[in-house]
Simulated scan of single mutants.
Amino acid sequence: MNPVRRGLSLLAALRTAVVSMPRRLLERTWAVLTDDGVRPALLFLIAMALAAASFGTFLVRGGGDPTRLEIGLQFGSLGIVFYMSLRQAGTAPR
């Protein structure tokens, strides 16, 4: 199967799954994701997951030079932490 067609079918399946969810659950999930108090924790968890994925791929491969995937995961984690620090610096009391 063509990778693009497979990706589109997965997106369609995801859309169908989201549409079939109860509206109240979707509203509660959206409220959690847009809450300013929860956002730093979620971003930190995403950054930690990216770093752990990079470390996991390093261990699975058995070491050696880092691959593009590992470097990309590390830069993704670094970018999220940098974004969080800029966002927190902008909201600090003066």
Rank of each mutant, 00 (worst) to 15 (best):
Q88K: 11
A51L: 06
A17R: 07
M84T: 09
N2L: 00
F58L: 01
D65I: 13
V60W: 14
P40F: 02
L59D: 05
M21S: 06
S77Y: 11
D35W: 03
A13E: 07
T91K: 10
G56Y: 00
A41Q: 15
S9E: 13
R24D: 15
A17G: 03
E27A: 10
F75G: 06
L59V: 09
T34R: 08
A47E: 05
W30P: 02
G63L: 03
L33H: 03
G63N: 05
R23W: 14
G56M: 04
R28V: 07
T91E: 03
L33P: 02
L45Y: 10
D35K: 01
T57K: 08
S77P: 02
R15A: 12
S20K: 09
T91Q: 09
G90V: 01
F58N: 06
S85L: 14
P66C: 14
V19F: 01
F44V: 09
S20H: 04
L78K: 05
V32S: 12
N2D: 12
M48W: 06
G63F: 03
R24W: 15
A31Y: 03
I71Q: 09
V4S: 09
A17H: 02
N2S: 06
T67M: 05
M1A: 10
G37Q: 04
T29W: 12
L10R: 09
F75T: 12
P93E: 15
V81I: 15
M48R: 11
P22I: 04
R6H: 07
T91Y: 07
M84S: 12
V38R: 09
A92T: 08
F82D: 07
M84W: 00
V32I: 14
S20F: 05
F82N: 09
R61V: 01
A12R: 08
Q88L: 13
R23T: 08
F82R: 08
G7N: 10
M1T: 05
S9H: 11
D65E: 15
F44H: 14
Q88M: 13
A47T: 06
T29A: 15
G56K: 00
T67Y: 00
D36Q: 12
V81R: 08
L45E: 11
V18Q: 03
A89V: 06
L11M: 10
L33E: 01
R61T: 06
F55P: 06
P40D: 00
L69V: 05
W30S: 13
P93V: 12
I46F: 13
G56P: 00
G90I: 04
F82C: 11
G64Y: 05
M1H: 08
V19C: 02
G64M: 00
G56W: 01
I71H: 11
L86A: 13
L50T: 01
F55V: 12
L86Y: 15
